Simulated scan of single mutants.
Amino acid sequence: MTVSWTPHRFTGGLLALDTANTVVLRGDPRRSFDRFDDPAEIARFADAASRFRAAELGGRPLAAPSPATIAPVVLSIREATDRLFRGAVSKGSITTSDLPGFLKACSDGLDGSRTEIGAPGKPFGDPVTPIAFETALAVSALSLLCDDTAARLRICPNCTWLFVDRSRNSSRLWCDMAVCGNRQKARRHYRRRRMAENEAKNA
């Protein structure tokens, strides 16, 4: 099934987190599914991410001309990132036993890359030429190890997506207030209404 890569799919705050969130409802075997089951979606995701993550990428477009070929590396980085940082949010610290796998996955994504990164105004290199999606994904994932970023990671209580809380007082609760926040409000309203109806019946 073709995925509609809407702005909501990019509420993680960083490319690596948006990619980690392409597995929907992690932890729920009955309902969980992978949006990258069809490798063609990796290319479509990369195209959308070029727009929605333009600020992070310094305007450099992502390239994924052979999604089936890069799928193993992309999925390896995705799963290692989710495992390491979901655990960090849950425990309040990074588990060192998860680091070798994470670093190896990122290394595989960078293997063969000849781009220069980190220059002022060019965080992902020259914005004129495309960058391989797996390379950009590895760079984005490694940036999560920065203390300030890691301390601001959260797990949405509605959809369980990972996201960066960049609110001033670090109090953001939902990955997307317009979607997950409103769904939770609707559920609470429904429960209160049912309780009121039941109380009225039993009065």
Score class of each variant (00 low, 15 high):
Ala55Arg: 14
Asp176Leu: 06
Phe133Glu: 05
Phe52Tyr: 15
Glu79Leu: 10
Ile94Ser: 11
Arg187Thr: 09
Thr135Ile: 00
Asp18Ile: 03
Asp98Pro: 02
Arg9His: 08
Gly125Val: 12
Asp126Lys: 12
Ala132His: 02
Val128Trp: 04
Tyr190Arg: 15
Leu14Glu: 06
Arg78Phe: 05
Ser167Trp: 08
Thr69Ser: 08
Gly125His: 09
Thr129Arg: 14
Ser167Ile: 13
Ile94Asn: 04
Gly121Thr: 06
Lys185Glu: 04
Lys104His: 14
Ile77Thr: 03
Leu15Cys: 06
Thr160Met: 08
Pro29Lys: 07
Ile131Leu: 15
Tyr190Gly: 01
Glu79Arg: 11
Leu62Asp: 00
Asp28Val: 11
Leu57His: 11
Arg191Val: 12
Ala132Pro: 00
Asp148Pro: 04
Leu173Gly: 04
Gly87Glu: 09
Ala71Gly: 01
Glu199Cys: 02
Tyr190Leu: 14
Thr96Gly: 00
Leu137Arg: 01
Glu199Ala: 15
Arg31Lys: 13
Ala178Thr: 05
Met195Leu: 15
Ala178Ser: 15
Gln184Tyr: 03
Ala16Lys: 08
Lys91Leu: 09
Asp126His: 08
Val179Ala: 06
Ala186Asp: 13
Trp161Phe: 10
Ala203Arg: 15
Pro67Ala: 10
Glu116Phe: 14
Leu142Gly: 05
Cys175Gly: 12
Ser66Leu: 13
Thr2Leu: 06
Arg183Ala: 14
Arg31Val: 06
Ala200Arg: 15
Val3Ser: 04
Phe163Val: 02
Ser66Phe: 12
Trp5Asn: 00
Gly58Asp: 10
Pro123His: 10
Ser143Phe: 01
Ala132Leu: 10
Pro67Lys: 13
Arg168Cys: 00
Asn169Val: 07
Gly58Pro: 09
Asn21Ile: 07
Phe33Tyr: 15
Pro127Val: 04
Gly118Tyr: 05
Ala54Trp: 11
Glu56Ile: 07
Lys185Asn: 09
Asp47Cys: 04
Pro157Ile: 10
Ser90Glu: 11
Gly58Trp: 10
Glu79Trp: 08
Ala68Ile: 06
Ala186Cys: 06
Lys91Gln: 11
Ala141Tyr: 04
Ala71Glu: 14
Asp37Gln: 09
Ala119Trp: 08
Ser93Glu: 13
Leu162Ser: 10
Arg83Met: 03
Ile77Arg: 03
Ala49Ser: 10
Val3Asp: 10
Ser97His: 03
Ala43Gly: 14
Arg44Asp: 06
Pro39Glu: 13
Ala141Asp: 01
Thr2Cys: 00
Arg86Asn: 06
Cys146Tyr: 06
Ser107Ile: 00
Arg168His: 14
Phe133Asp: 01
His8Tyr: 12
Ala138Ile: 05
Phe124Thr: 12
